[in-house]
Amino acid sequence: MAVSRRHPLTVLALGFVAVIWGFPTLWVLYATFASPRGGFTLGNLAEAFASAPFAQYAVNTVLIVGGLLIMQTIFGALVGFVLARYDFPGKSLITGLFLLQIVVPVYAILIQEYEIVQGLHMLNTKTGIMLPYLVSGIAVLSFRQAFRAVPRELEEAARLDGYDTIGVFLRVYLPRAVPAALAFAVISVTYHWTDFLWPLIVTNTASARPIVVGLAMVAEASESGLQWNLLAAATAIVIIPVLVVFASGTRRILSAFASTFDW
């Protein structure tokens, strides 16, 4: 573990690592902005934007990912609170139900999920994409863990001050779950905006299609072969925003990943 900071081998290894993981992405960004005649160009980017409704894909993605985050957080906080602080008959059964949601990934029951969404006439809608994900077991367990760590005395004190359950929940518990909520937000957003197969089979058209599915279609074979400059530019459109966000909050985002399963 005690790798020396200055050891030349370490520096070499770090350089190697940076090149292996960073270079392909840099190359695609370079290909996007480098004009074939030399110099800088926005032409590829403009062409990619014109080739598919990326703006609409992006809006769809924001609505889907944002909507899911809100719903998962609300459900997660409420259920987590109840499971952390109340005893009632059937509690372990219900806890097991939310664990089941973690244990059985959507991919494992894909075709049935598809048939349910089809039965609800929600194919090709953003709601249809969101439905199977509305409740997140990971959110429930994260909040439960955060709420458990809140000292009972704080709750008692608040009750003595005249707060009812909802007041205690809002004033005492929720503020102390903010770090867990933020960590969960990173996980949820990363998972859902990169999700591919489920939105692929649910969506038919640009009205509901998220950006990752739109991006995959650019890479598809076509009559006249692939337009490689478009492929690079479309990929750049998708990754530049996330790289900017990541670069500005690198450490916080990384520690959120590491605490994903810190229940």
């Binding site: 993981w21 960073g22 992405t25 990363t190 905006w193 990169t194 591919f196 990752v212 599915v213 991006l215 995959a216 890479a219 990929t235 998708v238 990754i239 996330v242 790289l243 990541f246 985002i253 990943f257």
Partner: peptide, 9 residues
Amino acid sequence: SPTVMPMIA
């Protein structure tokens, strides 16, 4: 960076 980008990208 590969961790935060979609597999498709």
